[in-house]
């Protein structure tokens, strides 16, 4: 991936509002920019709109009003057929891992590359490498239910990063993990960030960003409390 630093924010939300049916306002006039290579926490109480904001970014929902730019491109202008391809720029990690239970670890990670059309050999090479780097070497033939929560989350992270997306969105990825596993995940994210990946990390766990110098965006009832 060629890194260009042209000063354009990698993610921009401009006056984004998201309303769900029955007049539920999940996001209310959010304006926010992330620079390339930023590591930003997104926090707020339950129901404040964190997941919704991420969903807008990975095309699972559409904003009711306002514009979203990714790498300077207004996602409204992306044709339906091109959205899946654009989505490959974004790796997503969830609290509940979302692994396929009937596929082993290797196949779960390989999925992200099959979709892109990599060859058999390339897939094997890349998947093994990423599993290795996340401490999952030798666990490729295991099935998700044969792994601990922390390991499962690392598999999910492996799947999210195996095709080297410039952006990682994490929605409460440590919600199901104990403090040791939580730190492992944070360390992985730190390392990815050190290599230039932009990370937006949603969590309601204040301890994760206590004392960091990283940026923290706080939501409450769909509004931004602190931003800059």
């Amino acid at each position: 991936m060629i890194e260009r630093d042209d000063g354009i924010p990698i993610i921009t939300l401009a006056s984004v509002t998201k309303r769900y049916p029955h007049d539920i306002v999940a996001l209310d006039d959010i304006t926010l920019s992330l620079e390339k290579g930023e590591f930003c926490f997104l926090t707020g109480p339950s129901g404040s709109g964190k997941s919704t904001l991420l969903k807008l970014l990975y095309f699972a929902e559409q904003p009711t009003s306002g514009d979203i730019f990714i790498e300077g491109i207004n996602i409204k202008t992306i044709k339906e057929a091109h959205k899946p391809i654009f989505r490959r720029k974004i790796g997503v990690v969830f609290q509940d891992f979302k692994l396929l239970q009937d596929r082993n670890v290797f196949d779960n990670v390989a999925l992200a590359l099959e979709v892109v059309g990599f060859s058999h050999d390339q897939i094997a090479y890349r998947v093994n490498k990423v599993l290795e780097s996340l401490g999952l070497g030798g666990k490729g033939r295991r099935f998700p239910q044969e792994l601990s929560g922390g390991e499962q989350q690392r598999v999910a992270i492996a799947r999210a990063i195996v095709n080297r997306p410039p952006i990682i969105l994490a929605d409460e990825p440590t919600g199901n993990l104990d403090s040791v596993r939580t730190m492992e995940v944070l360390d992985i994210m730190d390392e990815l960030n050190a290599r230039g990946t932009t990370i937006l990390f949603a969590t309601h766990d204040e301890r994760l960003f206590e004392g960091t110098r990283r940026r923290v965006v706080r939501l409450r009832d769909g509004r931004m409390e602190v931003g800059y």
Binding site: A81, R87, V115
Partner: peptide, 9 residues
């Protein structure tokens, strides 16, 4: 999940 990892229709 397929959609999430960017699978085309």
């Amino acid at each position: 999940i397929l959609r999430l990892v960017g699978a085309t229709n």
